[in-house]
């Protein structure tokens, strides 16, 4: 039984190697495990976009950077695809300067795909990327009063708002001009900007998995209406849109990673028990 007690102190390098294999293997050879749609978190986001009329404006926020792109990128792309398909206009802002360029790249990629499929996703007409504007949360307050002034009347690419037809319908960020907010958040600044400054708006959130427990109370209280939770949230949205993509593909890897963690916990406890037993003897 001596070898069993060694399970109490497995070398971290083995832990890391097996974790790497558990994550990489299902990406190369998908297992095709079923994905269940979450009625309380994902479906409200989908239904909200479905309920919007063509021409309605919604505001999206990029509050993440490369680190959380794996989880939030697929969510953003699926949601943006849904809006464009429905003819809903999207104005994007970015609370994180480090994710500004990344957000644009992801949206541009999806817009090109949509154009290829014959769905209109023209920049300036169907969507605008105002980008990151320094000034923190006080600037978000200013955007409510005068969006154009707060953004210095330019988008991320340096285009004047005057030259972007969509922006002429959005001088002020209020409940009349926008039909809701979709914030993709990975930390701070993030969701509290909206629950504090936009408490009576329709707020929806795309969140990294680690933040989901922290956001659940806002969902329960009705302060946010829907929540895309990490990679499963993105995968479920892709399935709802009937366009399975990157998130669906990565879900198997997540399952296997979880399985290894559970195995480790069990092995660690066997080792702990055996060690304690041999010590008692």
């Amino acid at each position: 039984m001596n070898w069993l007690s060694k399970l109490d102190t497995i070398d971290p390098r083995w832990v890391y190697i097996i974790m790497a294999v558990s994550l990489v293997f299902p990406v190369l050879k998908p297992l095709g495990l079923a994905i269940t749609i979450d009625e309380t978190t994902t479906v409200p986001v989908y239904n909200w976009v479905e309920s919007l009329q063509p021409g309605d404006i919604v505001v999206g926020d990029i509050a993440f950077s490369g680190g959380s792109e794996g989880e939030l990128g697929p969510q953003l792309q699926a949601w943006f695809r849904h809006c464009m398909t429905k003819g809903v206009k999207v104005i994007m802002v970015a609370q994180w300067n480090t994710g500004e360029r990344l957000g644009y790249t992801l949206l541009e990629q999806t817009a090109k795909q949509l154009e290829g499929e014959g769905i209109s996703a023209e920049y300036g007409v169907d969507w605008v990327y105002a980008g990151y504007k320094p000034g923190g949360t006080t600037l978000w307050r200013q955007m409510q009063i005068d969006f154009w002034e707060a953004c210095a009347e330019t988008d991320m690419l340096g285009n004047s708002f005057q030259d972007l037809p969509l922006m002429h319908r959005f001088r002020k960020w209020d409940k009349e001009s926008s039909k809701g907010i979709m914030a993709f958040v990975a930390g701070s600044p993030g969701l509290p900007t909206y629950t504090t400054y936009f408490p009576d708006y329709e707020i929806y959130v795309g969140n990294v998995a680690v933040q989901v427990p922290g956001a659940m109370n806002t969902l329960r209280a009705g302060q946010i209406k829907g929540l895309l939770a990490g990679l499963p949230g993105g995968a479920q949205y892709e399935i709802l849109l009937d366009t399975p993509g990157r998130a669906v593909k990565l879900m198997d890897a997540q399952s296997m990673g979880h399985l290894w963690i559970m195995a480790l916990v069990i092995l660690g406890n066997i080792g702990y028990y055996m060690k304690a037993k041999s010590r008692d003897q």
Partner: peptide, 21 residues
Amino acid sequence: IVPLDSTMFSLLAFFIASAAY
């Protein structure tokens, strides 16, 4: 920058395993 950022974030998967263990 983006791949480096993702790489660092993905370290969490490994560290959560050793921390949970």
